[in-house]
Simulated scan of single mutants.
Amino acid sequence: MAFVQLEKLGKRYGEIDAVVATDLSVEKGEFVSLLGPSGCGKTTTLQMIAGFVDVTSGRIVLDGRDITHAKPASRGLGVVFQSYALFPHMTVKDNVAFGLRMRKVPSAEIQQRVDRVLKLVRLHQHAERYPRELSGGQRQRVALARALVIQPPVLLLDEPLSNLDANLREEMQFEIRRIQREVGITTLMVTHDQSEALSISDRVVVMQAGRITQIDAPYTLYEHPRTEFISGFVGKANLLPGERDNSGVVQVCNRGEGDLTLSLRPEKIDLRDAGQGRLQGKIASRFFLGSQWLYSVATALGELCVVRRNDGSAPLSEGTAVGLDWDAALLRVLTVDEVSA
């Protein structure tokens, strides 16, 4: 049996199903992200695991023990909230030690465990500071240390980086992953940021309208999305009409009609000189993204998004006629979404 097991887990508020019959298995030491838009049920799922929200149906099993109706304190899980929830009148050291004192751990052991975890999160030099004297990233690491110091079987992260600016978010993504790997703790993280989920997770669970729609390793999820929703939510995607030829090979239907919906990532499309390639178009608009140029190309199949690496050469001007080409093997056949976004 998996270390964390959700069996037909559901939550209903009146006539509204927030989470519908969810099955999920998480192995010990695994880092799993629940990814989806607002209202998809990911936070409710995490809160049910933590014990903060009552379960309507199904079971939660932790290391073989049914904790579905156990009180939050008896589950022993570590939780890091979006707001950090630090005590402003306590130093870093006292914030981290708080959970151990509530558990009546001996003072000498508290000192050892607090020192160890502060070194782990690289804050041992700030032990006597107060939260107001720390940066956002440092406060987040205090919250992480406080969750880890109780040595929980599972770490739950609820949008842990949403209050940080873009550069600090990226830095903290890899810091969280470093700490998780070093400790080896089973971790579930809720996020709506697809780049965050893809960059640090072992597996990503995509949720939509209270249901899990795909569970895969980050690379597999990005390269092989199952539905139109996943294709568009996890990265950018061009949706194209498709068909199978007489030999069963999938191809884009340039007539604009087809019995298949195909996904093609912007970076998989090559820009050619006008008259070359599988499809012709004109640059409708362009956007500079630093390391890349993002082009919107008007074609007979609608506007397509194309990404070209910034190699220092002059960008294409709006109105420039271009050809578009791609490797047919990179086309992905999508299924119709079973639930509405």
Rank of each mutant, 00 (worst) to 15 (best):
Q5A: 09
L6C: 13
K11I: 13
R12L: 00
Y13V: 14
Y13I: 13
I16L: 15
V20Y: 11
T22H: 10
D23K: 06
L24F: 04
V26L: 06
E30F: 06
S33T: 03
P37M: 01
L46K: 10
L62T: 13
L62F: 13
D66E: 13
H69D: 15
A70M: 12
K71L: 11
L77M: 14
G78T: 12
V80I: 01
S83Q: 10
P88H: 10
H89R: 04
M90G: 00
M90Q: 03
K93Q: 07
D94K: 14
N95L: 06
R101Y: 02
R101D: 07
M102P: 10
P106D: 14
S107R: 14
Q112R: 15
Q112D: 14
R113L: 09
V114K: 04
R116P: 00
V121C: 14
L123V: 12
H124P: 04
Q125T: 13
Q125W: 04
E128M: 05
E128R: 06
G136R: 08
G137N: 12
Q138S: 09
V142T: 11
A147Q: 10
L164R: 02
A166V: 12
N167V: 10
Q173H: 03
E175V: 02
R177L: 11
R178S: 06
I179V: 15
Q180P: 10
I185E: 13
T186W: 01
L188C: 06
V190K: 04
T191G: 02
H192W: 04
E196D: 06
A197P: 08
L198Q: 01
I200W: 01
D202E: 08
V205D: 07
Q208T: 11
R211M: 05
D216Q: 00
Y219V: 15
Y219L: 15
L221T: 00
Y222H: 01
Y222S: 05
E223C: 02
H224K: 15
T227L: 02
I230V: 15
G232C: 10
F233N: 04
K236C: 00
N238A: 11
L239S: 09
P241A: 10
P241Y: 01
G242L: 08
E243T: 14
R244T: 08
S247F: 00
Q251F: 01
Q251K: 15
G258P: 13
L260G: 13
L260A: 14
L264T: 12
R265E: 09
E267T: 06
D270R: 09
D270I: 05
L271V: 03
R272A: 00
A274N: 12
Q276F: 01
R278C: 05
R278F: 01
R286Q: 09
R286V: 03
R286N: 00
L289H: 05
L289N: 05
L294S: 15
Y295K: 02
V297N: 08
L304S: 09
R308I: 05
G312E: 09
A314M: 00
S317F: 01
E318V: 14
G319Y: 00
A321R: 08
G323H: 02
G323T: 02
L324K: 07
L324V: 02
L331A: 13
V333Q: 14
E338W: 02
